[in-house]
Amino acid sequence: MNRVALGRSIPWTLVVFLIAVWVPALGSRYDTFLGTQIAIDALFVVSLNLLLGTTGLVSFGHAAYFGIGAYACGILMKTYGVPFVIAFPAAALIAAFFALIFGFFCVRLSALYFAMLTLAFAQIVWAICFKWNAVTGGDEGLPNIPYPKLDWISSLPGLGDLSIADEFYLLTILMVALSFAILRQVIRSPFGRMLTTIRDNPERAAFIGLNVRAYELAAFVVAGGFAGLAGALYGIFNRGAFADYVFWSKSAEVLIMTILGGINYFWGPPVGAFALVWLNQEITSYTQYWPFVLGVVLLVLLFGFPGGIVGGLVAGYERLRRMLRPRHA
């Protein structure tokens, strides 16, 4: 069986970016709002999938690093007046630093214990965010994180006068696209190849000479850093950082998005993020029972489409191709 080469040669990140750029010009303000949300969640899920799909590690506490990124960027910009160009990468570094500390303990354990430990650390982070009034604002959260200075975007040739929300949208998709390009490269690198060997068979991976825990920790730190970037963007987008960002339900939500899209493909999780954000907006205008709908979606997914949306599409495409192609003797 040959593996699917479907669209391998197409630079999807660039294609999607070039399409997404047109949203403020062609869509409504609401579309831009939704687009920003989807772009941020897409980065969040892709960072998680570096652990889940590439390394085979189930983290149930990935929201911790998202939240740390949001708080770090928010505190730097609001409390200390640090400009975005510094606060943004600093948020990633701080999130990665926490991932390094927590991850050091987590990778000592395997499978379910790993998942439980990541969750436990995330709950600790949540408790701190929720109660450390002096720094995080406690249960009030950290409201009014300022927008970065974005006038320069409107002054770019051909863009004209844009609202601040449009400018932030463009900044977001640019940052997300750059992050995707980096993560895509990391997955394709020898380092990424080593991660896939650990996913397939940690025992054998150790016996081709890999220090499995060190590689797992490295993946955990990279994933945490990019989750921190997503969180930093989200804090600004949502005009504040709140303890909810770190709560276990947020960690579960990204996991659901990730497998909804399909963990075996780079673009699976972003598709899942797109589907879930869109569905959420559609549903919440009809009913308050969004968790119920999410639970049902999850059940259908678990029992009906374990490969996720993209997994299902690729399987369908393969079947179609086999049906259409004349059989060779």
């Binding site: 579960a252 659901i256 497998i259 968790p291 119920f292 639970g295 999850l298 678990l302």
Partner: peptide, 9 residues
């Protein structure tokens, strides 16, 4: 995730 779906539902 199955048991989490039960929590939601």
């Amino acid at each position: 995730l199955f048991t989490y779906a039960l929590v939601l539902i």
